[in-house]
Amino acid sequence: MTSWTADELDRIGNATELRVASTRKDGTLRRYVIIWVVRAGDDLYIRSAFGTDNPWYRRAKTSGTGRIKAGGVERDVTFAEPAPDVHRSLDAAYHTKYDRYGEALVSPVVGPIAAEATLRLLPRD
């Protein structure tokens, strides 16, 4: 399995915004959606701000693959399930990185509903 380089982790993890596009059945990419991204250890995570019914999240879960752009890095990725014990650290990472934008914007990406709509980003060749 391919892993993130230290440079990719730093650049993507420090980026304020990430663009994510899921793959269609024919292999083409859907349009990019801008979301937030956090790093926990050597992993990168994204969450749907409005739960599992958000269209971009449903498409990503269905396709399982896509592409991201952030911090000058563009990579094909697999959307994977996060480990069940990672959510508390992800909540803390979202607060640390994004609290400057205010509670109204951060609260949709923390807590139990956001935890259900979390994807781990795995790089693909």
Score class of each variant (00 low, 15 high):
Thr2Gly: 03
Ser3Met: 14
Ala6Phe: 08
Asp7Thr: 13
Glu8His: 11
Leu9Gly: 05
Arg11Lys: 13
Asn14Met: 08
Asn14Pro: 01
Thr16Arg: 10
Glu17Trp: 12
Arg19Lys: 13
Val20Ala: 07
Ala21Phe: 01
Ser22Phe: 11
Ser22Gly: 08
Thr23Ile: 01
Thr23Tyr: 01
Arg24Leu: 05
Lys25Ser: 12
Lys25Gly: 04
Asp26Glu: 07
Leu29Asp: 01
Arg30Thr: 02
Arg31Asn: 00
Arg31Val: 02
Tyr32Glu: 01
Val33Thr: 12
Ile35Phe: 06
Trp36Met: 11
Trp36Gly: 08
Val37Ile: 12
Val38Phe: 03
Arg39Val: 02
Arg39Leu: 08
Ala40Gly: 06
Ala40Ile: 10
Leu44Val: 03
Leu44Phe: 09
Leu44Arg: 03
Ile46Cys: 07
Arg47Asn: 11
Ser48Glu: 10
Ser48His: 07
Ala49Ile: 05
Tyr57Asn: 01
Ala60Cys: 14
Thr62Tyr: 03
Gly64Lys: 13
Gly64Cys: 11
Thr65Asn: 03
Gly66Gln: 01
Ile68Pro: 04
Gly71Glu: 06
Gly72Ser: 09
Val73Leu: 08
Val73His: 08
Arg75Leu: 12
Asp76Cys: 11
Asp76Glu: 13
Asp76Val: 05
Thr78Tyr: 09
Ala80Leu: 14
Glu81Val: 14
Glu81Trp: 06
Pro82Thr: 02
Ala83Lys: 04
Asp85Pro: 08
Leu90Ala: 03
Leu90Phe: 07
Ala93Gly: 06
Ala93Tyr: 09
Lys97His: 03
Arg100Glu: 06
Tyr101Glu: 06
Gly102Pro: 12
Glu103Met: 07
Glu103Gln: 13
Ala104Ile: 09
Ala104Ser: 15
Val110Met: 02
Gly111Thr: 04
Ile113Ala: 14
Ala115Ile: 10
Ala115Gln: 09
Glu116Ser: 15
Ala117Leu: 12
Thr118Ser: 06
Asp125Ile: 13
